[in-house]
C-alpha cells in the first residue's frame, strides 16, 4: 500500500442520491484518468449515494480495467461508504467485464 491516497467522491459528480446516468459515470472515469497515475492508493467514496446502476458503473470499471494493471487495482483500489445495493452492482459489473473481456488464462491478475 502507498502512504498517500487519491480519493474521488461520486456525490461531487451526481446531482441526487442515485448514480444512474452513464454520462456521470463517464465524467468520473475521465477525472480518475486525468488525476490518478497509479502512484497512490485509489479510493472511491460513495457517501450520500444510495444506488448505482450498471450503466453508470460500467463506465468507471471499464476505464479502470483499460488503463491500469489488474494486479495494482487489486492492491491499491478500495471503496468506502458503500452499501449492499452498490456493492452488488459493482461486483456484477466487474464479473461481467471479466467474463466478456478477459481470457481465463490471462496471468496479469
Amino acid at each position: 500500500m502507498f502512504k498517500s491516497d487519491y480519493e474521488i467522491k461520486i456525490k461531487d459528480f451526481v446531482k441526487n442520491e442515485y448514480a444512474h446516468n452513464p454520462e456521470d459515470g463517464e465524467k468520473i472515469a475521465n477525472e480518475i484518468l486525468k488525476n490518478y497515475k497509479g502512484d497512490r492508493n485509489i479510493i472511491i467514496n460513495f457517501e450520500k449515494i444510495k444506488t448505482v446502476n450498471t450503466a453508470f458503473a460500467n463506465k468507471i470499471i471499464e476505464a479502470l480495467y483499460e488503463n491500469y494493471d489488474r494486479k495494482d487495482l487489486n492492491k491499491y483500489f478500495s471503496m468506502k461508504n458503500i452499501n449492499e445495493l452498490i456493492k452488488i452492482t459493482i461486483i456484477k459489473v466487474i464479473e461481467n467485464y471479466k467474463e466478456v473481456n478477459i481470457d481465463d488464462n490471462d496471468d496479469s491478475k
Binding site: N53, A55, K59, K92, V93, V100
Partner: peptide, 18 residues
Amino acid sequence: KKGNSTKIENAGGLGLYD
C-alpha cells in the same frame, strides 16, 4: 442475455438482463 450489448464499449450488456 447477460453480457450482450450493442454499445461499442467493452463493458455493458447487463441492463435488460438485470
